[in-house]
Computed example of a mutant assay.
Amino acid sequence: MTAIRVLLADDEHLIRGALAALLALEDDLAVVAEAASGPEALSMARAHRPDVAVLDLQMPGGDGVSVAEALRRELPGCATMIVTGHGRAGHLKRALAAGVRGFLPKTVSAQRLAEVIRTVHGGHRYIDPELAADAISAGDSPLTAREAELLEMAEDGAPINEIAARAGLAAGTVRNYLSSAAAKLGAENRHTAARMARERGWL
Rank of each mutant, 00 (worst) to 15 (best):
H13W: 06
G38T: 05
C78P: 01
Y177S: 05
A170M: 11
A132S: 10
D63I: 07
A194R: 04
L23W: 09
D51Q: 09
V31F: 02
S180A: 15
M59F: 12
A45D: 05
V174S: 00
A197R: 01
R175N: 07
R146H: 02
L113C: 03
I127Y: 13
T84A: 04
L57N: 12
T80A: 13
A194Y: 09
S137I: 05
V83W: 00
S66H: 02
A89M: 03
G62E: 05
V54K: 00
R5I: 06
L96I: 15
M153G: 07
I160S: 03
E149P: 00
D27K: 15
S180G: 15
E147G: 07
V174N: 01
L96R: 15
A164I: 11
S109P: 02
A194S: 13
I15S: 04
L19A: 11
D28E: 13
S137N: 05
D51C: 07
L203G: 06
A33D: 10
R5Y: 02
T107H: 08
E12V: 15
E34N: 11
Y126A: 14
G61F: 02
V6I: 08
S137K: 13
G99K: 07
N176Q: 13
E162I: 12
A181S: 06
R146Q: 13
A21E: 07
R198F: 10
L151W: 05
S109Q: 04
D140K: 11
L96F: 02
A45N: 04
H13Y: 07
P159V: 11
R175F: 03
M44Y: 00
K184L: 14
Q111K: 10
G64V: 04
R195H: 14
R88K: 08
M81S: 03
G87T: 04
E40Y: 03
V32K: 01
Q58S: 13
A20F: 01
A95K: 06
A35S: 09
D140V: 03
G123N: 04
A148G: 15
V65R: 06
D128Q: 06
D128S: 04
M1G: 12
A30Y: 00
F103L: 10
D156R: 12
G90E: 01
Y126S: 08
L203F: 11
R101M: 10
V83G: 00
L7A: 07
M196A: 04
K184Q: 14
L14N: 01
I117Y: 08
R16I: 14
I163K: 00
P105M: 10
L169I: 05
L178Y: 04
R46E: 12
A194T: 06
S180V: 03
R190M: 12
R146I: 13
A145R: 14
D28I: 07
A47D: 12
T107N: 10
E40A: 15
I82C: 02
A98C: 01
L8S: 09
G62A: 07
A9M: 03
A197G: 01
R101D: 01
S37C: 04
A97L: 08
H121K: 08
V116G: 02
T173W: 04
A18K: 06
E149K: 03
D63G: 15
G77Y: 12
